[in-house]
């Protein structure tokens, strides 16, 4: 996440539970609200909302539930939104394949992780078999 010259500052942070399918909608609605309030354009809002939807769904479907933390950032010039998705599920056994795209253990499209990576500026994933998965993404407003 070292794409910035300036130290970024966290303006707010909130954590939401992802226990039920409805929670996916709650998380992405909140993401959209924050993005709109911080002046993200319509394309960036759609990207961020879709990314939130993908990762929250992965937490629910593959991770057996977990949490999402949404943070508002500022680097002095731009606003950013960082989202951390955490679960204590099985972890991703073959991370390389999962990130390649088109691979799914749930017989869905398998394009969530690879696609999300293209929707945001920063994408980091930390997964341990049997312990869980944490995906962190950040998107910034344009200058």
């Amino acid at each position: 996440m070292g794409s910035l010259a300036f130290e970024s500052q966290t303006l707010s942070s909130e954590t939401m539970a992802i226990d039920r399918e409805e929670d996916i909608v709650h998380v992405r609605k909140r993401a959209r609200m924050l993005a709109q309030a911080r002046g993200f354009d319509a394309f960036a809002c759609a990207a961020l909302t879709t990314a939130a939807s993908e990762l929250a769904r992965n937490v629910w479907v593959h991770g057996g539930g977990g949490q999402a933390t949404l943070e508002e950032l500022s680097d002095g010039n731009r606003f950013g939104i960082r989202m951390v998705f955490r679960d204590q599920g099985p972890g991703i056994a073959d991370l390389e394949r999962a990130l390649q795209g088109g691979y799914s253990t749930a017989r869905s499209l398998g394009l969530g992780l690879s696609g999300t990576r293209r929707l945001v500026e920063d994408f980091a994933i930390d997964t341990r078999p049997g312990e869980g998965t944490r995906v962190t993404i950040t998107k910034w407003t344009r200058f």
Partner: peptide
């Protein structure tokens, strides 16, 4: 919409 079109392309669907 334009946003949805672009998102679908980026997702690679």
């Amino acid at each position: 919409s334009a946003q949805v079109a672009r998102t679908i392309v980026q997702l690679g669907v």
